[in-house]
Amino acid sequence: MEAARLKALRQYEILDTPAEAAFNRLSRIASLIFETPIALVSLIDKDRQWIKSRVESAPSKGTAISAFLPLPDAK
């Protein structure tokens, strides 16, 4: 499943590309719906996280941010 996700991510050729209005709109909508001062659209590659969009409605000083990263299966 992980290999398929990474393959799909690479096929989109979206990593290392500039910000786009559509992703910024998604970030603004998420910020409004969840009433958060910051919202991100991030893409998780094999070895890194690429932040495609970030919006802030308030200064980030003192703001706590939660990040969700997939962990490899324990074997």
Rank of each mutant, 00 (worst) to 15 (best):
Y12Q: 14
L43H: 04
Y12F: 10
V41C: 03
I29S: 02
S31V: 05
I33N: 04
I29P: 00
L40K: 07
L71I: 13
L43A: 02
P37N: 04
R54K: 15
A39F: 01
A64T: 12
T63V: 15
K61S: 13
R48C: 10
F34W: 05
I33H: 04
D16W: 08
S42W: 01
S27W: 00
Q49Y: 06
I44N: 09
I65T: 06
V41W: 00
T36H: 02
E13C: 08
W50L: 02
I51L: 07
A30F: 01
A30C: 05
A58Y: 11
Y12D: 08
A3P: 00
I29A: 07
A19L: 10
D47V: 05
R54A: 10
K61R: 14
A3M: 11
P37W: 01
D47W: 02
A21W: 04
A21I: 10
V41M: 01
Q49S: 11
A3T: 14
P18K: 07
P18R: 06
S42L: 03
Q49I: 10
P37D: 01
A22Q: 11
V55G: 01
S66H: 10
R25D: 05
I51P: 01
I33R: 04
E35L: 09
M1F: 11
A8G: 09
F34P: 03
P37T: 01
V41K: 00
S66A: 15
A58L: 13
I65F: 02
Q11N: 12
A67L: 15
A39T: 00
D16Y: 08
E56W: 08
I51A: 05
I44V: 15
K7V: 07
E20F: 06
Q11R: 15
N24Q: 15
R25V: 07
S42T: 08
F23S: 07
P70L: 09
V41A: 01
A8S: 13
D73W: 07
T63C: 09
S42P: 00
I29R: 05
I38G: 02
V41G: 02
L71N: 11
L32A: 15
V55F: 02
M1T: 14
L32G: 13
L40I: 08
E56I: 07
T36C: 08
R10E: 14
S31W: 03
R5Q: 11
I33Q: 04
F68R: 14
A64M: 12
Y12R: 15
L15E: 06
W50M: 01
Q49E: 11
L26N: 05
Q49T: 10
P59W: 08
L9Y: 02
L71F: 07
E35S: 14
L71W: 06
T63H: 04
A58M: 13
F68Y: 14
S27V: 03
A3D: 14
S66D: 11
A22Y: 07
P37K: 03
R10V: 06
E20L: 08
A3Y: 10
I65K: 02
S53W: 00
